[in-house]
Amino acid sequence: MMDELELLKKDWKKREQEFPKLSHDDIYKMMLKKSSSYVKWIFYISIIELGLGILVAIFYHPSYEKEFPLPRFMDFIYLITIPIIIYFIYRFFKNYQQISTTASVKELMKSILKARRTVKLYILINICLGGIISIISLTATFIQLNEDWEQLSSSEKLKEYFTFILIAIVATALILGVFLAIYYLLYGILLKRLKRNYKHLKKMEGDE
């Protein structure tokens, strides 16, 4: 086997003459073409995701569409989303800056996966907050349509409320689940090869 690989090494060098010789002009034209790399696509999708989060935060304030006052702590939930978004925007750009083609193969893969994880976390937090907000809003609205907050605990309709809350939770979870599934599918396709290669590289370290 050793001999065969050495033989191949010799052949490898000889074959250099078989390659097409690209001219200065050919290379110049190629250089100006648009890249179709994974990172570019992941970057664009991440920007859209961040943008959607920001848009939701700006335009969807729980107290806007309100004929019914919502519990006070809803404002608090809304307020904490702002520093969260600012933090993620900062991390996002920092991560993408760190992706460098001059790094080792492993470092490059790591930095791409890290950038991806940040946006994934951002989406998860957004979805959780969105879920909590919609469940509370739905429930609060439902209760107020029927009677006052104060009467809730003594109400005979307690069972009915619980049923409604349960339905609200299940419906929200289903809708968000569909979003998440689409999201994972999207990245599953984009990152399939990268993840596979990263696994091969990691495995190499494992079996020393």
Binding site: Y38, A103, I112, N197
Partner: peptide
């Protein structure tokens, strides 16, 4: 490095 990184990762 860049060429291999492109072929494998990008």
């Amino acid at each position: 490095r860049i060429a291999l990184n492109t072929a494998i990762t990008l």
